[in-house]
Amino acid sequence: MATGGRRGAAAAPLLVAVAALLLGAAGHLYPGEVCPGMDIRNNLTRLHELENCSVIEGHLQILLMFKTRPEDFRDLSFPKLIMITDYLLLFRVYGLESLKDLFPNLTVIRGSRLFFNYALVIFEMVHLKELGLYNLMNITRGSVRIEKNNELCYLATIDWSRILDSVEDNYIVLNKDDNEECGDICPGTAKGKTNCPATVINGQFVERCWTHSHCQKVCPTICKSHGCTAEGLCCHSECLGNCSQPDDPTKCVACRNFYLDGRCVETCPPPYYHFQDWRCVNFSFCQDLHHKCKNSRRQGCHQYVIHNNKCIPECPSGYTMNSSNLLCTPCLGPCPKVCHLLEGEKTIDSVTSAQELRGCTVINGSLIINIRGGNNLAAELEANLGLIEEISGYLKIRRSYALVSLSFFRKLRLIRGETLEIGNYSFYALDNQNLRQLWDWSKHNLTITQGKLFFHYNPKLCLSEIHKMEEVSGTKGRQERNDIALKTNGDQASCENELLKFSYIRTSFDKI
């Protein structure tokens, strides 16, 4: 039985969820670079991206490699990797027998973001014989899940209580170790020597080791999670996991709180800001991140802002960003909400898709409305799209047979046209069989910064309504002859009103 693990408890099935942008060198404390989270699957090609990484700022997932063999891993080693800020997950990587050479110096898994409450997941690794993470000293947050690894031993010899604050939620089941077939031998045991430290858990006094050649490092209890030197002297209180010299914040392997210019500090002093819960960055760093993602459509890219001495992905609820200094300031009234469309555009074809934009005031991208039916549609669209004030790209209304009016965009005031449909149009209306009105132009103002209007096959939309939009939106004169079809717009509506004058002759039985 794995020490510190839980057996036999019912657990939810383990679901495996399925960018080499360097964020800056980590400095003297770390020998390499800070790398983003990685999802490495199918083959070993991307694994080489770990070569210079000291910190993975995010998670590391290595999974679904069915053609790899043990010899493929023999020359692979990433000794610079010290810390993973989120979680480490391995799933069905064939041929991998140990992690001792792959990650010989991995010391800390912070667990800032977890995989279903777990910071370390080893699942269905069919050839893994031992973990071998002999320098792993601290899992700051989260638990361990090690399950269905039929060859995995050296679990009962690990004292997880020396690595985690609590072992109650560890789930370590259905491994070879369960069948008591392992016969784990710690260093020196074969020669009758006791080389590794022994600890007591559940009444068992057991030597602690990761492999037959690597003991588990056990520091004096007084050192807590700070770690200790090879001689057993406690590291500085700002260290986490390990250090090369005692009581020196510049000799830590990793930091308990924050890293700044080669030393570990309790908090980031001005003019620095907390970033990702582990390091200090200056304003320029946060500003660069903001600008890199301002026009990016890459998933996970955030326009970072500053709030409460932190550089964070977005302002919290009730705050909006001051564009001059990136500071989050309290909103006066309802907060603006910028919604970034991942692929640059979004099609609204149902109430469900409209709900995804609920509360958005600025759309960074283009909207395509293609709704053919739905219950209580006008009210639903207004509830979900009615706060949109600005669209950076274009607005396209296409084959939306259920629409009679666009009044559900009740606050839309600006279409920038930074991206144009077919390279020309910022407003595009095609084949809307029941569209009769755009907006009530006596109450609604709309500016279209650039781009043209396109109207074709809107049989109940009168040309007068379209011409009014040209005047109000500032697009009059931009359109070419064929942009607004004269014969297919309003051709099934009563669009022309003329005053009919009647004269009559009164007659009676005795007068003409």
Rank of each mutant, 00 (worst) to 15 (best):
K251W: 02
L174A: 12
H307R: 02
G188C: 13
W160Y: 10
I139A: 03
V206G: 03
S237Y: 12
S244M: 15
F73L: 08
I222V: 07
I122H: 00
Q61S: 13
N308F: 09
C234K: 02
C328D: 00
A119P: 01
P269T: 02
T329Y: 12
L164C: 09
P70E: 05
K100F: 14
R110Q: 12
I201V: 14
S213T: 08
K193Q: 15
C331L: 05
Y94C: 11
A119S: 08
L233Q: 12
F275W: 07
F275I: 03
S244F: 13
L102F: 12
F275S: 03
G241H: 04
F116R: 07
V121E: 00
R41H: 01
I82M: 14
S244Y: 06
V253Y: 10
K80A: 08
Q299K: 15
E314G: 05
G232A: 07
V253H: 11
R74K: 12
I109W: 00
T45R: 15
T229W: 07
R46C: 14
F73I: 13
C53Q: 00
D288R: 14
E57K: 02
S213E: 10
N282V: 05
L289S: 10
A230W: 10
G183L: 05
D165Y: 14
L102G: 02
S323G: 14
Q287E: 11
Y154I: 08
K224A: 08
G188E: 04
I82S: 05
Q245S: 09
I163N: 01
G318A: 03
L90H: 00
H127K: 03
G192P: 07
K129E: 14
N179P: 08
E207H: 15
P104S: 01
L44G: 05
I139W: 00
L47S: 08
Q245L: 09
V34S: 04
C223P: 02
M83F: 11
S237D: 14
E168W: 11
V253D: 15
G203C: 05
G95I: 03
L155Y: 12
V253G: 07
F258K: 02
R46M: 14
R298K: 04
A156I: 10
P271R: 09
K294L: 03
D248M: 03
L29S: 08
F285A: 05
E147D: 07
D169F: 10
I109Y: 00
C186Y: 03
N322E: 00
L88A: 01
N308H: 12
R92F: 05
C268E: 00
M65V: 05
L102H: 00
S284N: 13
L174V: 15
R263L: 00
G300V: 12
L332W: 14
V144W: 01
F275A: 03
R141V: 07
L99R: 00
G95Q: 09
P270D: 01
L106A: 00
Y154K: 08
L120A: 09
R162Y: 10
Q245E: 14
K310M: 05
Y30V: 05
L76Q: 11
Q276N: 11
M125R: 00
G37R: 04
T68Y: 12
G37A: 15
L128V: 03
R256G: 03
N149H: 02
P336N: 08
K224H: 08
F258M: 09
S225I: 12
S323L: 10
E147T: 12
T199V: 09
N138Y: 14
K193M: 13
L136C: 05
F283Q: 03
P36R: 14
C53I: 03
S77M: 11
Y259D: 14
H226D: 10
L233M: 05
A119K: 01
F275C: 02
T85G: 02
F283I: 14
V144C: 04
N150A: 04
S237E: 12
M83C: 08
R141N: 14
T229S: 09
N42R: 07
Q276Y: 09
W160R: 15
K310C: 04
N175I: 10
Q245A: 08
G111Q: 00
Y118L: 03
A156E: 03
E97F: 15
Y134R: 13
R256W: 02
L29P: 13
Y171H: 08
H302D: 04
E180W: 07
G300Q: 08
C186Q: 01
G300S: 10
P316M: 03
P220M: 02
H48C: 02
D75F: 11
N42W: 08
V253P: 02
G241F: 03
F275D: 01
M137K: 10
H307N: 04
P270I: 12
T250C: 03
K80E: 03
E314H: 03
I163F: 12
T250F: 07
R74G: 02
M65K: 03
T329F: 11
F116N: 15
L240V: 04
D165H: 06
I158A: 10
V55W: 03
N150C: 03
K80P: 01
E207W: 14
F258D: 01
R298H: 02
D247L: 07
Y171T: 06
G58M: 00
S161Q: 07
V200K: 03
G192W: 15
L88H: 00
I146P: 00
P70L: 12
A198R: 10
R46I: 03
M38Y: 07
V34N: 04
L240Q: 05
S225K: 04
K148W: 03
K310Q: 09
S143I: 03
S317W: 14
L90W: 03
L99P: 01
T68Q: 14
P316Y: 03
N282E: 08
E314C: 03
S296E: 13
K294W: 15
G241P: 01
P187S: 08
V108I: 15
G262L: 02
I306A: 02
G37F: 06
G300D: 12
I201C: 14
G183Q: 03
N309A: 11
C268S: 00
W278S: 07
D101T: 12
S54R: 14
S166T: 15
Q216H: 10
N295H: 12
T329I: 15
D261S: 03
C209N: 05
F283P: 10
I62D: 00
E130W: 12
S324M: 11
C239T: 01
L327N: 10
D261K: 00
C53N: 00
D177S: 02
I163W: 02
L233Y: 06
H290E: 03
I146L: 13
T157P: 09
K224D: 11
I40G: 00
C255H: 01
F275Y: 09
L131A: 13
C264R: 00
C255P: 00
E71V: 15
L155E: 09
T107I: 15
N52L: 04
P197K: 09
C286V: 04
L44P: 10
C234I: 03
L60G: 00
H28W: 10
A119L: 01
T329K: 03
M137W: 12
L260R: 00
R113P: 03
L81V: 02
E314V: 04
E130H: 10
T250A: 08
S244P: 04
E97S: 09
F116M: 09
C328E: 01
C293K: 03
D39T: 08
H290Q: 14
L120Q: 00
T189E: 13
